[in-house]
Amino acid sequence: MKRNVLRRAGRGLAGLILVLIFFAPFYWMVLTSLKTLGQTLKMPPDFWVSDPQWRNFSEVMRRIPFFSMLKNSIIVTIGILVCQCLTVIPAAYAFARFQFRGSSFLFGLTLTTMMIPAQMIFLPLFLMFSKMQMINTYASLILPSASSAFAIFMMRQTFKQVPDEIVEAARLDHAGEFKIMCRVMLPIARPTVVTLALITFIATWNDYFWPLVLTTKDTVRTLPVGITALHLDEGGIDYNVLMAGNVLLVIPVMIAFFFAQKQIIKAFTYIGDK
């Protein structure tokens, strides 16, 4: 009996420590974003602020072109989502439903590209875009992610699970391939589409690497790169303003995570598990 109580207490304590390790940094981020510069340099630090400094947020907007970068983030994210819908769905459909010459070669090629990180090829890609005078355009930020091998793979799996009878029935009704794809297959695959869209949204919204490498001007830069300007801007680091910028960057993803936590976690589990 006593051992049981001790064990439960131990589990609770371990759980609490876990929560602290994983939530404390976010709490610290929000707390710092509401402090004055003087308070951030106080030792011992305050663990609560009685007089939140909302003006740190307007300071963020004064130091960087926040709204134009927000607009850029939204344009690039939507652009990539739209492009991926147009390229991924037909490709996945073809790989799932047709056996054509070279199909296994092309599918193998698609899978191979999954193993090649952006960080490996950014330099030649930058040179390629600069030769084409496409640096500092939305196209240079969208096109490299205009299709996704991972999404093709996932959609293909989903399409393959659709029973052949359903497709055959549609064929007997003289439905064309396009109609079958849009009217029969897509509605069945809707959960996968939503899942993939969530993953793409989070990845694109958070991405710092591509926009850093492929842009040189603020005009097309997205928020993550914009936030870093708060750090590099002036001599010392005003951590309260920097954290305010971080809070603004994190909010959309956190809102999505709050409402669709189950779905997002399931979405990412898909990757490892199928």
Binding site: F22, W28, D207, N246, L249, V250, Q261, I265
Partner: peptide, 22 residues
């Protein structure tokens, strides 16, 4: 607890780098 552990994974590396740097 799974949700708590997962949170950092969906947050931008920019924010994560800065908060830990701080």
């Amino acid at each position: 607890l799974q949700g708590v552990l997962f949170t950092p994974y969906i947050v931008s590396l920019v924010s994560i780098s800065y908060v830990w740097m701080w």
